[in-house]
Design a protein around this nucleic acid. Sequence first.
DNA 1: AAATTGTGCAACCGCACGGCG
DNA 2: CCGCCGTGCGGTTGCACAATT
Length: 256
Amino acid sequence: MGRKPCCEKVGLKKGPWTVEEDKKLINFILTNGQCCWRAVPKLAGLLRCGKSCRLRWTNYLRPDLKRGLLSASEEKMVIDLHAHLGNRWSKIAAQLPGRTDNEIKNHWNTHIKKKLRNMGIDPLTHKLISPPTEQQQQKHNPPPLEAKENKRNAASLELTMPEIKEQEKSSSSAFNSIDTNALQTKTPLFCTYEIPSILPDEILVPCADSSSTSSSYNFSCMEWPESSNLYLWEMDDFNCWDLICDDGDKRLTVDG
DNA sequence: AAATTGTGCAACCGCACGGCG
DNA sequence: CCGCCGTGCGGTTGCACAATT
C-alpha cells in the first residue's frame, strides 16, 4: 500500500539485454560479487532496475547454469517435485543444479503440461482427468482441447504417443511412474476418456514419505546423467566471457 | 512466396516475505 | 509491534522464430 516502486522507472531501459549490458553486469559481479541488487545498476553503469539485473544474472548469465533442454531424468524430477510442491518453482529448481525457476516453469508450461495432458493426467493435480458425465459429453462432442493447444495437439498426438512409448521403454524415462498398461491400451489417437480407470496413486509419481519436506526429499533413486546433451559450465567456461568482450555485436550465446 | 498461426523463452510485473530500525 | 526496504517468487506478457496454410 503506497509502497515505493522497487526502482525509479523513468528513463530505465526495458526489454532484451544487449551484449554491452551483459558485459557490464558480468564485469561488475565478477569484480564485486553479488551485493545489493538495487545498487548494482547504478554502480555497474546500467540503465536497468535492480530487479532486472538480478533476473538477468540468475536466469542467464550465472556461470553455473546448464544450457539446453531438460534431460529425461531432470524432467522426471520436475514432475515428481511438482507433485509434492506444486508451482513452487524455486523450490523445484533448488533440487536441479544449474537450472533456474524460470527455466523449469517455462519447460513445465510448454512441454510437460502438454505431455501429461496427452497421457490423460491433469498437470495440476497429477491425477487422472476424470471422465465427463454423459451430459458433459453431449455438450462437448468432440471433447474440447484447450484453445491454444487445439491444433498442435490434434496434429501431434500420433507423434507424441510413440515418443511416450519410447520413453517408457527407457529405464530413465520421465514417465516411469505412469502405469504402462494404461498407455499400451491406448491407440495413438486416444482421448482421455479411454484411460482405464485405475487409481491415481497407481499411476502417479511415487511420493516420498509424506512427512518429508522439500529439503529432505530423497532423490537417491534418481539417475543423474553423466554426459547428457546438456552443457554445464565449469570454471574454465568463464573464458566464454572473453568472447563477449571480443564480439560486441552478437548476442551473448553460450550454448556449445 | 506470402500470410497466418503457433510455440518457446526471456523478461516484466506485482505481491509476499523476511530483516531491520 | 509497526512500517520500511530489499529481495525472491510465481504469473503473465511480448516477441522472435518456426510451422502451417
